[in-house]
Design a protein around this nucleic acid. Structure first.
Length: 272
DNA sequence: TATAGTGTTATCGG
DNA sequence: ACCGATAACACTAT
């Protein structure tokens, strides 16, 4: 579910509602989600601190933490990755979810905290929760965000051209490579390629200069549209990922298969 | 009961 | 060492 737009929404929820609240307790007992830390390690690092700022690069979020009390050195960064099914929920001092916590379509019911895998409890008794049924999300201290490529909203034409000029990988696999460009997931990739009218399986090294230009323009436009719309579910092409669907532009049947290890849909005519 | 899934990463082969 | 392909991860919803 979460691609760059959903993660940006999660970042905004944290920014609006979780900063500067004193951390009174931490549940880091899920050893898979909190790997490679030992249980209690994240807790010990954060108690008494506050989240001071929240950043995002691609699909990764991290929070700077304050010193303990009014002085002392800052703490480690708290990194959060939502994986395939993670959501961030922030609750107020009464335990009620702050609006924006449930921001994508196949939503859990408000107040359903069954799949909480990590949590901060604030001194005011509110909380920040990572709710993640599949447990593929991740929480860790000082996450290695420098390994990520430039954020999809910030990438320059020069960087983009350098990444898509060479190699034999399918262009979709390259779009999904977070070391190359950070934030594009399976749905954004399909939407981008559909908008650029490029076959997902085309080897990146064979793209013409004009195609790379179209791809950059489409990626930019797609990501921006999804961010301002609040999530990838507003993308026009998403509803055409279904058996029997036809291309909303030209009416040809939509084709599907596996590209770059992921389920992929494309127009059988315009992206032949 | 079987399968797919909006993400990442270790491992393997070329 | 680099590049690309694949399986594995954990678990729910259909």
């Amino acid at each position: 579910m979460p691609e760059l737009p959903e993660v940006e929404t999660a970042r905004l929820v944290i920014e609006d509602a979780a900063l500067e609240r004193v951390i009174a307790d931490v549940d880091d007992s899920d050893t898979y989600v909190c790997r490679p830390h030992q249980p209690g390690e994240i807790r010990a690092a954060l108690l008494g601190r506050r989240l001071a700022a929240v950043h995002r690069r691609g699909k990764s979020v991290w929070c700077d933490t304050s010193g303990v009390g009014d002085s002392g050195p800052p703490g480690p960064a708290l990194g959060i990755h939502l994986g395939m099914s993670g959501k961030i929920v922030v609750t107020d001092r009464h335990g009620d979810e702050i609006e924006g916590g449930d921001y994508w379509e196949r939503g859990r019911a408000l107040g359903d905290h069954r799949y909480t895998r990590f949590g901060l409890t604030f001194a005011d008794r509110g909380s920040l929760l990572l709710i993640d049924p599949r447990r593929l999300g991740r929480v860790r201290l000082d996450p290695p965000v420098d390994a990520l490529g430039p954020d999809a909203l910030d990438i320059t034409p020069r960087q983009f051209r350098a990444a898509f000029g060479k190699g034999t990988a399918p262009v979709k696999a390259r779009l999904l490579d977070q070391h190359v460009i950070a934030g594009i997931g399976n749905l954004l990739a399909d939407q981008t390629l559909w908008q650029a009218k490029i076959n997902p399986a085309r080897p990146v090294g064979e793209l013409t200069s004009a195609e790379v230009s179209r791809l950059l323009k489409a990626a930019r436009n797609t990501v921006k549209t999804a961010v301002s719309g609040g999530g990838v579910h507003i993308l026009p092409m998403i509803e055409f990922r279904a058996p029997g669907a036809r291309c909303p532009r030209c009416g040809a049947p939509m084709a599907h298969g596996t590209v770059g290890g992921r389920t992929t849909w494309w127009c059988s005519c315009e992206q032949a």
